[in-house]
């Protein structure tokens, strides 16, 4: 790890002021991803600005949603009684990720901006466009079991590894940003970029811009939401495929639906196509299958991750069927 300067700041204003002043500065949350990448020399910041003293409060919004300070730990978020009862998929997604120790350290802001686990990204002796634009990608013909089938490009197939972000994408969470130019908001589904030719550019953030909060809009249907994660061991592993799901029925018609996928996309993958194919349709297996196929039609599998197309298909259908049955048993949920 190369030497760096360290500054702890008390609020976002100070954070941005420091970031503007320093060269090659990075915001440091719990460090669970950044410190690891610095040890691998993948990240080489000259300055770390510790933003863990920023707000970690979880408050009600006027609209009836919740706003979460970016420095809230993953554990605090997952354990919050309001999240657990109103947005259970978010709790489940967080609890399905990493270990208790890491969830106690990792922050919400850091989790959103964590970087891919691609082995070639991690190993500086190999080629990676994300590390070094134009260098090439050794994953394309290498080991890519954990890699994406959706949103890929010829330069990058790395997945976004977050479970939490998948749940947030399904919830239409909004990201509150602060930068030298002031504050703005962004839908979480617009935060992460698809790689295209520049897989090094991962988030739609301006220089020195900082995530200060995540807002969950009110969403009654989320009370019966779930997150299901499939991985190579029973716990403490990244997703091969995960599905965040919720369904609202009007009689036997799907009135509203949210689906998002983890482990298959170059970014937390909101299944817009599937949702569009489901909304207003009868809640039948046939509808589910057609919707899922609509979503996965764009999949570009490679030899090592082709199984994910079938796995994602099965998981989405299973999730929809389960949500359907939950919805029919409505009052009991």
């Amino acid at each position: 790890m190369r030497a760096f300067d360290y500054h702890q700041v008390a609020d976002s204003e100070q954070a941005i002021e420091q970031a503007v002043r320093r060269r090659q500065a990075k915001y440091l949350g719990g460090g669970t991803n950044l410190v690891d990448l610095m040890r691998e020399t993948v990240e080489r910041p000259q300055t770390l600005i510790d933003v863990t003293r920023l707000s970690r409060d979880i408050d009600e919004t006027a609209e009836g949603g919740l706003i979460i300070g970016a420095a809230a730990t993953n554990a605090a978020l997952a354990g919050d009684a309001r999240i657990r009862s109103r947005y259970p998929l978010l709790s489940r997604a967080i609890l399905s990720g990493a270990s208790a120790q890491i969830r106690n350290m990792a922050t919400v802001g850091g989790n959103l901006l964590q970087r891919t686990r691609c082995a070639y990204f991690y190993d500086v002796a190999t080629r990676c466009n994300k590390r070094e634009p134009g260098a090439g990608c050794d994953a394309l013909e290498g080991f890519h079991r954990y890699h994406a089938i959706l949103g890929t490009s010829s330069s990058c197939i790395a997945t976004h590894p977050s479970d939490m972000a998948v749940a947030l994408a399904a919830l239409d969470a909004r990201i509150h940003l602060r930068g030298p130019e002031g504050e703005r908001q962004l839908a979480v589904t617009e935060l992460h970029r698809e790689p295209g030719e520049r897989s090094d550019l991962e988030a739609e953030l301006q220089p020195e811009e900082l995530i200060v909060a995540v807002e969950l809009p009110p969403l009654p249907m989320a009370v019966r939401s779930e997150y299901r994660k499939v991985r190579d061991r029973a716990s403490y592993a990244f997703a091969l495929v995960s599905v965040a799901s919720m369904v609202e029925l009007d009689g036997e018609t799907i009135q509203n639906v949210r689906l998002a996928l983890g482990g298959v996309g170059t970014r937390p993958w909101r299944a817009w196509r599937a949702e569009a194919a489901l909304r207003g349709q009868p809640a039948t297996e046939a509808t589910f299958a057609a919707a899922v196929d609509a979503e996965l039609a764009a999949a570009r599998p490679l030899p090592g991750n082709a199984f994910k197309v079938e796995l994602a298909r099965r998981l989405m259908i299973a999730a929809l069927s389960q949500r359907l049955s939950d919805a029919r048993n409505g009052g009991d949920a």
Partner: peptide, 23 residues
């Protein structure tokens, strides 16, 4: 030394963390 095994677990203000990833 990368938060993957838990051997470095310590308690900080009573909460368990991986000391290897903590500066």
């Amino acid at each position: 030394n990368q938060g993957a095994c838990g051997a470095c677990t310590v308690l900080v203000d009573g909460e368990r963390i991986n000391a290897c990833l903590a500066l």
